[in-house]
């Protein structure tokens, strides 16, 4: 691909990731912008990237970027938190206690050192998902599944911060590392829905597509 490079002594490819998922977290909704030196058919770009990337890193769609940056169109993420070994009833109580709190202070190591911040305000939705399908690899184990929508704020509130919050308010301690998956990112509507950030550029042209 005729990728564009930054200027300078060591030029870097022009790629910017909008709020990349943290390490160790699954995602079905990552977005990035790529600068190109010449026009390329988005479907060809998509196919070429998909062929070069690792199994499990699937490039689903590419569109030509319109006005404004991708980052401006992303202000919230929806996450699924699978908690194998956690009783859904216990999870429900913890979630209720979390939502009932005006502020839930949690700690995290950042590059600047240990920081304490509020994990509650950024959360717009936190609820037990219905009767759960058992997560892969955890057959026969009880598993609470939490559906979570978090606004993008600074410092970022990540799913593990919300899990820390559940521990703070209700002592919820998953026995094994939870499996977290980002399901969607985009613009948060007043109704609490997340709008796909590529919608605006798709128009009627219908290039790419799932």
């Amino acid at each position: 691909m005729p990728i564009a490079y930054s200027q300078g002594f060591t030029p870097h490819p022009k790629i910017s990731y909008a709020s990349a998922a943290p390490t160790g977290v699954g995602s079905e909704a990552e977005y990035l912008e790529i600068g190109l030196q010449a026009p390329v058919d988005p479907e060809q770009l998509r196919a070429a990237l998909d062929a070069a990337l690792s199994p499990g890193l699937d490039v689903l769609e590419a569109v030509i970027a319109g006005e404004g940056s991708l980052a401006d169109r992303i202000d919230a993420s929806r996450w699924q938190l699978e908690l194998p070994g956690v009783d859904p009833g216990d999870a429900e109580k913890a979630v209720t206690a979390f939502l009932d709190s005006a502020e839930v202070l949690v700690e995290r190591m950042t590059k600047q050192g240990r920081r304490t911040f509020d994990a509650r305000a950024a959360v717009t939705r936190c609820a037990l998902a219905g009767e759960p399908d058992l997560p892969s690899g955890a057959v026969g184990v009880r598993c609470a599944i939490i559906d979570l929508v978090v606004r993008q704020v600074t410092p970022a509130v990540r799913p593990d911060d919300v899990l820390s919050g559940l521990r703070v308010v209700a002592g919820l301690e998953p026995p094994v590392p939870p499996r977290v998956t980002r399901l969607a990112q985009g613009t948060l509507t007043a109704q609490g829905e997340i709008v796909d950030p590529l919608d605006a550029d798709r128009g009627d042209v219908g290039i790419g597509g799932r």
């Binding site: 691909m1 005729p2 030196q37 010449a38 390329v40 060809q44 196919a47 070429a48 062929a51 070069a52």
Partner: peptide, 8 residues
């Protein structure tokens, strides 16, 4: 030129 478009 190497930078024409090629798809594997």
């Amino acid at each position: 030129p190497v930078n024409n478009l090629r798809v594997p």
